[in-house]
Amino acid sequence: MNVFLLELRNTWKSVFKWTVILGIISFLMLAFFPSMQTESMKELAGAKLEGVSPELLAALGLSKMMDFTIITNYYGYVLQYMTLAVMVFAAQLSVSSLVKEETDGTIEFLYSKPISRSAIFVQKLITNLVSFISMLLVLAVIAIVGYVSFSEYTLGESIKEVSILYGAILYIGIIFMSVGTLLSSIMKTSKGPSGVAIGIVFFTFVIGITGILNNNLSFLSNLSPMDWIKTNKLMTEGILTKEWIIGIVTIIVSTIAAHEIYKRKDLLA
């Protein structure tokens, strides 16, 4: 597990920074929840939602019935925007993972050691997964503490609700990571991994919104993992079978393709 440890050592600072920032935002948002439960806020939110068209509400992941005095409705709504940031992180982590060392030239250090490219690939993948899961675990724990502190949910109820939300984020995060890894294996230089990562995430986000706003293009929602986990739908319908199939096929195909490309890739000086 040499490459795993080396990779962990080289990425933990970035993972730590993202986790701290997102953790603080998450906790502050949850701390704001008790003020949502006042009558005046309830009326204000209701009035605002009444004035918005159903299509736009759907695009924003809301419904007219949305009751923000329920913490999962409130936190789930906030979380969908945090999820965008988490997905950018996941995609960036994976887009950088293979090509960055090639651009920096540090990969020669590994390539000159008795370890196969497949082993390097797998260990880098595991590192990304471990980093991502660690981040989500910390964020989930913060959310559970927030639920227990700022709502009437018990610890058991909080764990159950937060697990559904973060479990779904983990699933779509792995999809973005697999696509990011595929791009990383194809790319010739790591210049601008953040741009590529933001591009992947926002592209799928925008086509999801397009699918909601235009009935003729509703099939596009199937290609937008962010749409699969909008809180309302997630808590009522869960992730649909077709969404599992699309996601798992994407993960498998992207990962296998990335591995095959990486194994045969010339290391350009």
Binding site: D104, G105, T106, F109
Partner: peptide
């Protein structure tokens, strides 16, 4: 192997 341009990990 000794490379002509040694590029190892900067913060190690």
């Amino acid at each position: 192997y000794v490379p002509s341009d040694v590029r190892f990990y900067g913060d190690m």
